[in-house]
Amino acid sequence: MNSRVLYQPNSEEIIYHYCSAATCLAICTNKSLQFSDLMIMNDSSELIYSLEIFESLKNDGLSTSMYGVIKDFIKNFTHESLFLTSYFSQAPDLLSQWRAYADDGNRFCIGFCANTLLHLPVYPVKIIYNANEQKNNLINHANCIQKNLSNYDKESFMKEMIQLTYDFACYKAYHFLKNKKLD
């Protein structure tokens, strides 16, 4: 498991979800969170950004064979799967979040105990904004998979490749840094 992107909160940490009045009411009434398809959200360009980073590694850090294996897997996986996500922030009062997700400050910011949310069947990631760190993370993860290829059974290999694909959702362009988001 790639621990560089996993979000591991401290025991008392609160994370925040900025939302509309209707979403706040639904969360409180149903005592549940809704996860949405990343490809139809306003942040769908972020997954495309990650794919562009991956493409840049074609001749820079990945073997040609591993690049091909990953590219084919991602192509098939993203067409056959949903990337469900819900965003949280570590900041309880962040102007960029109010503007983007809470109707320009006219809505709600709900705090959740981060450790409680980790009891859900989720893969919590930290957002990585630094382009060099993103590339290094991808290269290291891919090289780790390649190095251990002979040790994987089919199920373990699939699990590792799915995790690598999920990690793509945590790479965001530097200009999003002000959002301080968690997936």
Rank of each mutant, 00 (worst) to 15 (best):
I128S: 04
E55M: 12
I162A: 00
K180W: 11
H119W: 08
K75W: 02
I48M: 10
A26W: 03
K135C: 13
Q134V: 02
F88W: 06
I74M: 09
H79K: 14
I14K: 11
G68E: 15
F83H: 10
N59S: 13
T78M: 11
A131W: 00
L51F: 08
Y7M: 08
K159L: 13
K147A: 14
L84R: 06
T78N: 07
M158V: 00
R4Q: 14
M1I: 04
A26I: 04
F112K: 02
V5M: 12
L118D: 06
C109L: 09
A100F: 00
N140M: 09
N132W: 01
Q8Y: 14
A102E: 00
S45P: 02
F73G: 00
N106F: 07
F83A: 12
A173Y: 10
L6W: 04
P124K: 04
T78V: 13
Q34Y: 12
I128R: 07
Y174M: 12
K135R: 15
E133Q: 09
F77S: 01
S50P: 02
L33I: 14
F73T: 01
Y87A: 10
Y171C: 02
F83Y: 13
S150M: 13
E12C: 06
Q97S: 05
A114M: 02
R107K: 14
I40S: 14
R4V: 15
L94C: 15
Y87P: 07
F108C: 13
N136L: 11
N76F: 08
T64M: 13
L25D: 14
R4H: 11
Y101K: 00
A169W: 04
C24A: 15
W98T: 03
P9Y: 06
Y67T: 05
C19P: 03
K31P: 00
C109M: 12
L47K: 05
S50H: 01
N59C: 10
S36Q: 07
N2P: 03
Q90H: 13
F112S: 03
L164I: 01
L82D: 12
M1T: 09
T64E: 15
D153K: 03
P9M: 07
G68H: 09
K172L: 03
Y166W: 11
Y171T: 02
M1Y: 13
Y123Q: 03
H141F: 15
N115A: 01
G61C: 04
Q8A: 12
Y18N: 01
V125N: 08
V122E: 08
Q163A: 10
Y87D: 05
T116W: 15
Q146F: 04
T85K: 00
N42A: 07
S32E: 10
L182A: 01
E13L: 05
A169S: 15
H119R: 13
A102I: 03
Y16R: 00
E13R: 08
Y49V: 06
D37S: 14
T29F: 14
S86F: 09
C170M: 06
L149Q: 11
N42F: 03
D43C: 08
T85M: 06
N2I: 09
I162S: 01
